[in-house]
């Protein structure tokens, strides 16, 4: 008999997917961006990513062992947190940044709030924000081929980055630019995102409305009107694609209902562009997603679908 037939109470229809198959799909989807990051930034990038993953898994095991829980590092979720954190760091960071970041992500953001599925914000993003605010200098040391560069967004922002020229759109698309390890290559991230959509691991609503609202905001307040290159710069640069496909869609910290997902996506989009243009930091994706993460319980509460047959009060 196949696994599909199980004698039990409802639900009766089951799929083979479970936490680890879903998580494995996410890892597969992140591979192109990871590979490109390593190709683009070299050995240091590989080292940073490995440090992140190993220490994330290590802290998860350590915490669960210490609190006498079942050790669940086999479910890939700590690996993904570590990998996402690694992709969100510049490759120039000293060795202790990945370790400290993983500790914050796993212990403080994830385990202290109840572990897998209970975290109120995306652990990797929480850690990135923690590191960015604490070590602004280290966390924005973008280099490409050993030369310090400003990211396209920093150049966009101001006269303060005089002497740096904006990269060509095509470089932005393929990824040969300065930035965090995993966020430079738009094409690699889109490939991964499409894979997740195709495997139905993520729903199109959050990334779709997120990207669309960023584009709309870029037209509305980007300063150049309906200018294709402004829109593309906003959509392809920074951590937007990485955030939209892989982090805003985190199951535990995104809304359940379809309308809720759309609210989440639009909220992230609006906040991202506002922070990019008016905020103190050049990139707004991580803060935007974290802020919307905090609204998820509220969004869920007001978007509960009407239950069938209920008598109106």
């Amino acid at each position: 008999m196949s696994d599909l037939f199980v004698v039990s109470s409802s639900p009766h229809i089951r799929a083979k997917e479970n936490v680890s198959t879903i998580m494995r799909d996410v890892v597969i989807a992140l591979l192109p961006a990871t590979a490109f990051g390593i190709y683009n930034f070299g050995f240091l990038a590989l080292q940073t990513i490995i440090l992140c993953v190993v220490s994330a898994v290590g802290f998860e095991a350590l915490y669960q062992w210490f609190t006498k829980q079942k050790v669940t590092i086999g479910d890939y979720s700590a690996i993904i947190t570590g990998l996402l954190l690694g992709l969100n760091l510049p490759h120039t960071v000293p060795f202790w940044i990945p370790i400290l970041g993983s500790a914050f992500a796993i212990i403080i953001v994830k385990q202290l709030f109840g572990g897998l599925g209970q975290n109120f914000m995306n652990p990797a993003l929480g850690a990135r924000a923690f590191l960015l605010i604490s070590f602004a200098g280290i966390m924005t040391n973008w280099q490409i081929d050993g030369v310090t560069t400003a990211t396209p967004l920093a150049i966009f922002k101001a006269e303060s980055a005089v002497g740096f020229t904006s990269p060509q759109l095509i470089d932005l698309f393929i990824g040969g630019i300065g930035g965090s390890i995993g966020e430079t290559s738009a094409i690699a991230l889109i490939l991964g995102g499409l894979y997740l959509l195709f495997r139905k691991v993520i729903d199109w609503r959050i990334p779709g409305t997120y990207l669309l609202s960023v584009a709309v905001m870029a037209v509305a307040i980007g300063g150049n009107g309906f200018d294709m290159s402004t829109i593309l710069y906003h959509v392809f640069s920074g951590g937007l694609l990485l955030g939209a496909f892989f982090m805003a869609t985190d199951y535990a910290s995104s809304p359940v209902s379809n309308i809720g997902k759309i609210i989440m996506g639009v909220g992230c989009g609006i906040l991202t562009v506002l922070i990019r243009l008016y905020g103190g930091y050049p990139e707004g994706v991580s803060f935007a997603i974290i802020i919307m993460n905090l609204f998820v319980p509220l969004i869920d509460r007001y978007t509960i679908p009407k239950s069938f047959g209920e008598v109106a009060k």
């Binding site: 202290l112 923690f130 605010i133 604490s134 070590f135 602004a136």
Partner: peptide
């Protein structure tokens, strides 16, 4: 030692308070 600046900012107050509570 690289100071963890966030701890002397507002969010750090909440983080440290929570950890000390625990």
């Amino acid at each position: 030692f690289e100071p963890i600046t966030i701890l002397v900012l507002a969010p750090g107050a909440f983080i440290v308070l929570g950890l000390l509570f625990a």
